[in-house]
Amino acid sequence: MLCDDIAAAWLAHTDFAGNNTAVGLLSRAIAPQEFDIKRDSLPVAAAADPATAAAILQLLQRGQVPTMAAIRTLTTQNEMRCEAERIERLGKRAQRNIDEFGRVLARLANAYWTEHNTGPTRRDILAEPEVTALIAERVGDVAPSAVKHLWLIERAQRAGWIASNANPGSLCAARRWHTTKYGNRVSQKPVNLVGKLVAGFVIEYTSTKGRPPTWSTLARETRDDRGRRVFFDVADAHAQRRWLTTAEWLHPDEDQPVAGRRGARAVAKDSRV
């Protein structure tokens, strides 16, 4: 059949040269009517497009007939995968600069709290000119709709710069923002370990004394395994109260320090080990 000759000629310059199975599959796409199949034929000229040609070869590799519908579906999937891979690469760039992003996000969140007594939404803080400029400088060209896929909020949160939970307006500056000015005069332990230290001290003190510690006691006596203070002073402890309650290391509705759900779970888990 003529369609076989056309298919063989096109495949002659590919890895499928001389492959009768591939010729048969491509022939069914080029001239479906010759096989009593009712569907749109694949124009030979379509193979001139590199993306279409690549999709045809990919479908043949899978043992599928490269119909126009299959080509469109596969091309869309390939484009989506390429974009996802691009965003993943950009996300890795963001991670390499996460301290710079975290510092900016924490400062903006803290300023927003000062002005509004609540935190900014994720969308609003990521749309701040300073953040978008930093993304362009450190990461590259990212469409506004794709910025969320860089996971900047989550990355900065894991790094200890900001904290947030499921509640609207919870986004706030966290441990590393508050301790930057104190340097090595306070503990430099990771944020989650600090949260666990604080909750652990509160639980042990309450169990021993029959009442929760004061903020002054918490600030003075909570120390890491190297004996370094977690808080610089009581004012610092009060300043860090927001992120500690946001992250549920401490309970938000108590005047004195009381362990939150996350803090209680972490301490209980450690006690079982």
Rank of each mutant, 00 (worst) to 15 (best):
E128T: 09
V65S: 08
R81W: 10
T132G: 03
T76N: 11
T132C: 08
A133V: 07
I98S: 00
L74Q: 05
V139K: 02
R72K: 13
T121N: 02
L57W: 09
G102H: 09
F35W: 12
A51I: 12
L105G: 02
A133E: 11
V104S: 10
T75N: 13
R81I: 08
A84T: 09
E100P: 06
V104C: 09
T114L: 14
M68S: 13
M80R: 12
R89W: 09
E79A: 15
T76H: 14
K38W: 10
D40K: 14
L134V: 05
P66T: 00
R62V: 05
I125F: 05
H116N: 14
M80Y: 11
E137A: 12
D99V: 08
F101T: 04
R103G: 07
R138N: 04
F35A: 04
E137T: 11
D124K: 13
H116M: 04
I37R: 12
L59A: 01
N78S: 12
A46Q: 06
R103D: 07
A46L: 06
L57H: 09
A45C: 06
E85K: 11
P120K: 00
Q61A: 15
C82F: 10
R107Y: 07
T67A: 03
F101I: 02
A106I: 06
V139R: 03
I71H: 04
N78G: 09
T52F: 13
T121Y: 03
L59Y: 07
A70S: 04
L105W: 04
A45N: 06
R81P: 05
D36H: 13
E115I: 11
E128A: 14
G63V: 00
I37H: 10
